[in-house]
Design a protein around this nucleic acid. Structure first.
Lengths: 172, 172
DNA sequence: GGGCGCATGTAATGAGTTACATGATTGA
DNA sequence: TCAATCATGTAACTCATTACATGCGCCC
């Protein structure tokens, strides 16, 4: 659902072929976009079938390169783009944190072991946070996305501290 | 993956039948557990096939009630439980926020419309936060889960404020 | 007699992933 | 000559969901 928004949003700015889209996503949106290559190709094919994007026939492939399919967005695609955009902005489909299940049963472990595992987790989150801080400053709305991640990673670290504190209390 | 952890974790405390598990989850873990009834039944069947849980033959069904399948955890199940628990505690599989895709393209909307949509979102998140605050205080680790959600919902609200502020700046 | 609670499932579908296939060109 | 880059895809599979089916007993 949101993957279609991603593809349409990029094609709206510029016509591109699949490989180019995948590269762009991997290099510039890796931290927020979640799509694998075959999924992208599949989705492009489907969006094209449904008339939301169209293959650009005039697009030529450099002669010494594999043939490529270049797409542009159609009017219906623009329309779908706006629908998806509005829907995704408006609605919050409340998050589920997989770790919660582990926390719910954390008392099955000795507090020593739980502590060690949580420290590992803490450090992993800290690294993600550092990675986000290292992302070069964007000018447009992408900067907001980076700040979004930073905000949640910081919240996660603070909460992990609390959990570790709770563990220590329980241990006594 | 984490759904198996949920079922095993509950069965580890007490043998139960499917309906009972589903009721318990719906009434006590609705905010953090993410599993539908048919999935639970399916998973129970599979866990039983694989020997991680076993049907309790001595369990009797009240005569005027539909027959039920009661399960208990096995030794192998305990083992799997601990493996999943450790894995889920240790690893953080970094979150992806679907809204990020919409934010990335938010400049396609007039700042007036974007503002209105974000306000809707803000209120929805605020309601989720209130719902979490209304959850009665737990004593065990479940309290940590509630606090986890509260922490992230608060972070989300603060970030939304920032986004709304950014919109206002852009508009000028 | 009509709806709810109890209790278990099946069938069809969806959405996405992994692993693999292909084949040309470019650079070390 | 060996690996990497360019470029597109297919096939098989996983995981979970939705919608539906079934049937008894209880209560109003």
């Amino acid at each position: 659902m949101d993957r279609r928004l991603l593809l349409l949003g990029l094609l709206r700015r510029q016509e591109m072929h699949g490989y180019q889209l995948n590269e762009f996503i991997e290099h510039n949106l890796a931290y927020c976009a979640d799509i694998k290559k075959p999924t992208a190709y599949y989705l492009l094919e489907k969006l094209a079938e449904q008339g939301y994007i169209a293959e650009v026939d005039e697009a030529e492939t450099p002669s010494n390169r594999p043939p490529r399919r270049t797409y542009r967005i159609t009017l219906e695609g623009e329309h779908l783009f706006y629908t998806l955009l509005r829907e995704n902005l408006r609605r919050d489909q409340g998050l589920v944190f997989p770790v919660d299940m582990a926390i719910a049963f954390i008392d099955a472990l000795s507090s020593t072991e739980a502590h060690a595992l949580l420290r590992e987790r803490y450090e992993a989150v800290q690294q993600q946070l550092q990675a986000m801080r290292d992302v070069p400053q964007h000018s447009g709305p992408l900067q907001l996305v980076v700040e979004h991640h930073i905000a949640h990673l910081e919240a996660e670290l603070a909460w992990l501290d609390k959990v570790i504190g709770w563990l220590a209390d329980e241990a006594t």
